[in-house]
């Protein structure tokens, strides 16, 4: 039943992905980029050469034909080649993806591990000083721009700590340029960007857990659980928490596309060699195949993320049927 549901959902999402590619394609062609940046500036090329190169790249074909070439390649798993360096788009993505996954998964795990207890405590002690403090933190978390927080963290933990002679954290990159790459080295590089990214997740998810928990705690079945004589701890963590996590799962599942987009700013500030930074770099260079490929890739992630969330949702809540 689950397998059939997954297949049906995948089929249903094909038009969505197609739509995204069409829109992105249209938007990119509506901009005034030359698509092969710098070609005209090369003094060794004659105008005929430029026309020939553009012809060879298919850039002078009618738009539908161009789109057709690109999309039929995509159907074979070919995302095309970068117009800037000529290497396959997919190779760029697969080079950068592990870094992005490392960063985002760490941030999401941190987010889950911290936000759920914060939300639960906030709900159990609603109105208390500690609850108000958490509320303050989470308002701060959503309103502080992450690039600003990132700069502050760098200033404190990299610059000032260094100046004070304390153990300091690297301010950028995924590993040290010289002799780096061992786990310890990678983790020290990971700490600041992951914390920064997790901060936003914690802010949102802890609020969400709190309100969801409050709602569940007022449910009749929680009263039933208490009436059976179980401890408040068991009531909270066994009977209430599981129910209140069901909607949170969807929220977290929707964060999966953030693997690429959500962390982009953080990746840029911390020079993290991930997919988000790749997208920004290439967009600034008019690398249109690259941007098209990355957008499509994100669209696929959105679809997978939603599907994953729905499946977990159904596993947590037996009332959900795969309909």
């Amino acid at each position: 039943m689950l397998a059939r549901y997954v297949v049906r959902r995948v089929v249903a999402s094909i038009p969505v992905v197609f739509g995204v590619t069409l829109i992105t394609f249209g938007l990119l062609h509506a901009t005034s980029g030359a698509f092969v940046p710098g070609l005209e500036l090369n003094p060794n090329l004659r105008p005929e050469d430029i026309i020939r190169i553009r012809n060879n790249l298919g850039l002078n074909d009618p738009l539908p034909v161009q789109y057709w070439h690109w999309i039929s390649g995509l159907l074979h798993g070919d995302f095309g080649r970068s117009l800037v360096d000529g290497s396959p788009v997919l190779r760029h993505i697969s080079d950068r993806l592990p870094n992005t996954i490392e960063l985002t998964i760490t941030a999401i795990l941190l987010g889950i591990l911290i936000s759920i207890p914060l939300g639960v405590v906030g709900a159990l002690r609603r109105g208390s000083v500690i609850d108000n403090f958490f509320t303050f933190l989470s308002v701060a978390g959503v309103s502080i721009p992450s690039f600003w927080l990132a700069l502050l963290l760098i200033l404190l933990f990299s610059v000032s700590f260094h100046a004070w002679g304390l153990p300091w954290l690297p301010s950028g990159g995924a590993e040290s340029a010289f002799g780096g790459g061992d786990p310890i080295d990678r983790i020290t590089h990971l700490i600041l960007p992951a914390t920064c990214l997790a901060f936003v997740y914690i802010a949102i998810w802890s609020r969400f857990t709190r309100s969801s928990m409050l709602e569940v705690l007022s449910q009749d079945y929680v009263r039933t659980a208490r009436a059976k004589g179980m401890s408040e701890r068991r009531v909270t963590y066994l009977h209430a928490l599981r129910n209140s996590l069901v909607p949170l799962v969807t929220l977290i599942g929707l964060e999966l596309p953030g693997l690429v987009s959500g962390g982009a700013i953080i990746e840029i500030v911390f020079s993290w060699p991930g997919v988000g930074r790749l997208a920004l770099e290439r967009a600034l260079q008019y690398d249109y195949t690259m941007v098209l490929g990355l957008t499509t890739f994100v669209a696929l992630l959105v679809v997978v993320g939603n599907l994953l969330a729905d499946v977990i949702y159904a596993l947590l809540d037996p009332r959900i049927r795969y309909a």
Partner: peptide, 19 residues
Amino acid sequence: RGEEIAMIFQDPMTSMNPV
């Protein structure tokens, strides 16, 4: 509770934990 004095409630549809 539950051992000496047990209680059942008005709405059986919402009184049991759905999960």
